[in-house]
Design a protein around this nucleic acid. Structure first.
Lengths: 402, 402
DNA sequence: CTGAAAGCGCTTACAG
DNA sequence: CTGAAAGCGCTTACAG
């Protein structure tokens, strides 16, 4: 078993505690708040400290990183050569390189990125400000951005604005003051102000998942029209003929676009396929109930045989309400959602959905950022539209034969 | 409507596109890949560019942040005074302060945090390395850490190691090279190597959600024994008498501890309450089926009336399997999970669970880090155990009367 | 291939 | 209360 020793081999508090026959917490108190410890115990602890030669100073070394000057001294070269060994090793004689690397290893040298960025005038980190890490889509975006950044030998730093505009601004400023190479923003609402905030400094910026229609910066978007189209088309392909679009009727861009896609699929299908649009007055976990009442109130021949919900959360809610009313899914009514939201994965009937490909979105954002950095003054903002994909599960297609 | 103009009022590509009657993409192509654009269109775009006085250089200003020297010049003071205005405003005469602030505002000055950290020798950002952002617990931890950091006027930067030790190491090094004030690590597995990696530089470090038993650093832990105890105790309080512990039988610390808590609750309940322990051979989405078969195979008088699953994911799986077998939850058998995992929120029957209080854990970690920074050489590592709490929902208590 | 020196944008004693 | 100057730890031309 490894024992808990300081790097110089001095005993740790764990060993003191063991030797004194008390808990580590008691040792801590004995050192910091001796009045909280009974005199007898205090004596035992001090005896153990004495015996083991324990010293707090050795136990927790002061924070100190060796600098390039020290590396240079140990290696017997100049600071410039250490820098070259780090950044342009091909320009350094192999023997020298070896000496420098040995010194780096020996001292445990970790370059100071702040000094590096200051002197070199560039940073290799990208900042990602995300509206809600509780939503799977944004975790996927972060994952994809991370992957693409790593492939380009850049680091990704994430920040969660948690649906708060003030935090979002603070995080944009944070990355600006860190002089990151660029910022990816997945905003809560119209990011106009945020964009200005970043761009007035000329910092490259990519906005993800929000189309402000202005093209002030590069953008990565979901083709939401296609989300709706894929969903409705799937139901039609399964032979369903009376579709219902289940959504809150609001003006949010993604909602409108998905609805348009559903309508197009129904239109393309021609006669024989109908569409009814049902308002849930909300997209929360319980908003399925209301819609299901509406569905059941319809005369049998007009009752839909397929429900497409605007989100997975809503879709799950609808499935539950249907089952609660004694209907079976998908036999009586097929149901699906949109988003591929992990919070909807636990349902009684696995929900068919349209997946948004967050990882691809995150990766595309980092690629756009890299392009903007490379192209410099010649850069022209682009928009990338990531295509969603259908994910068929039981709520539409039924249980696969085993 | 706001129009998309550069900060100097020059026209944007959007306006060029509108004026030429083409899409923004076409303008982009006309500028960057003229051969892709038909000559007639090209002419229209160039005419519009001519007419509007559009210039790419103005459209995307080169990246340039004003420095304190420029602020000082505009304000008519020295650089040191600007610095004081920023960091020790109480030491600056009000009139001077106002001039400096006006200059900062006018120039859009954002201090360079790298230079600041280098000169001042300290940073106000904390790094959080998290094992899996897809798991709600860690998102909650990040949220709590963020909140506590903000309250202390520090920034939190998050990194997702995505269950990959190599990434975890890379992220620890990243934060080390950024000379952050301290690091919070929620590790995948035994973090011994990672801890050494950070601590050899004396960087403050707090480990969350992993008890390595060595006390080399401050730690924030869940009381997993109590997780199990609360769960079993809840079932017993509801009048259930034949409990089953449903879990993969493995040696993971949290699993062992939760099991111990369940046993203690049953023991305390005395005669009349039994416990059977069922092995799921996995904790995935489908591992409930196997256990339910086992349950149904038991003679009626030994069949459990309450199942406690080690995780929510498993709990949801168990509920589904029971319902699939025609049993009702909680009437025939009450079920609950542990973790309060958002991925289990969509189930047909809302799952009773024991919540891990991730936000509190994240906040506690930042507090420990702050204490370590303040106490310096006198710091002694502490461990904070965060108490879980019971969250009662339908799967154990049934539907609340409406 | 290597070294000496300037400079990145700040903060912090220290004078005044 | 304000300014001049040193220095944080690097990178980058420029000499040699």
């Amino acid at each position: 078993m490894r024992t808990a020793r300081g790097r110089d081999g001095s005993p740790s508090m764990v060993e003191v505690a063991a030797s004194a026959g008390v808990s580590v917490g008691t040792v801590s108190n004995a050192l910091n708040h001796p009045h909280r410890v009974r005199p007898a115990t205090l004596a035992k602890v001090h005896a153990a400290i004495e015996q083991l030669g324990f010293s707090r100073a050795e136990n927790r070394p002061a924070r100190t990183n060796p600098s390039m000057v020290q590396v240079a001294t140990v290696a017997g070269v100049s600071v410039g050569t250490v820098s070259n060994a780090l950044n342009h090793p091909e320009q350094v004689r192999p023997a020298t390189l070896a000496r420098v690397r040995a010194a780096i290893e020996q001292l445990g040298f970790t370059p100071n990125a702040n000094a590096r960025s200051l002197a070199g005038g560039e940073s290799r980190t990208i900042g990602l400000v995300v509206v809600d890490l509780g939503n799977t889509l944004f975790v996927d975006i972060a994952r994809g951005a991370q992957r693409e950044a790593a492939a380009r030998r850049e680091s990704l730093l994430v920040t969660n604005s948690d649906r708060d505009d003030a935090q979002q601004d603070a995080h944009l400023d944070l990355f600006e003051s860190a002089r990151v190479r660029g910022v990816v923003l997945a905003p809560l609402s119209d990011p106009f102000a945020g964009i200005q905030r970043v761009r007035r400094h000329g910092t490259p910026l990519v906005v993800v998942n929000y189309d402000d229609g202005r093209q002030d910066c590069c953008t990565v978007l979901v083709d939401n029209e296609r989300v709706g189209y894929l969903a409705a088309r799937h139901m039609i392909d399964l032979g369903r003929r009376r579709l219902a679009w289940v959504s809150e009727l609001n003006d949010l861009q993604p909602v409108r676009e998905r609805q348009a896609g559903v309508r197009r699929a129904v239109r393309e299908a021609g006669r024989g396929v109908d569409l009814v649009e049902l308002d849930t007055e909300g997209v929360g976990e319980n908003h399925g109930d209301h819609v299901v009442e509406e569905v059941l109130a319809l005369p049998a021949r007009r009752r839909p045989d397929a429900l497409v919900a605007v989100t997975d959360i809503l879709g799950v809610s609808v499935v539950e309400a249907l089952q609660g009313a004694g209907l079976s899914v998908p036999e009586d009514i097929a149901v699906m959602g949109c988003d591929h939201d992990a919070r909807a994965w636990g349902g009684a009937v696995p929900l068919t959905t349209v997946r948004l490909e967050g990882e691809e979105m995150g990766a595309a954002a980092v690629r756009l950022l890299a392009a903007e950095v490379e192209e410099g003054i010649d850069h022209v903002h682009r928009r990338v539209v990531v295509q969603p994909s259908l994910l068929v599960r039981e709520s539409s297609a039924g249980r696969a034969p085993r």
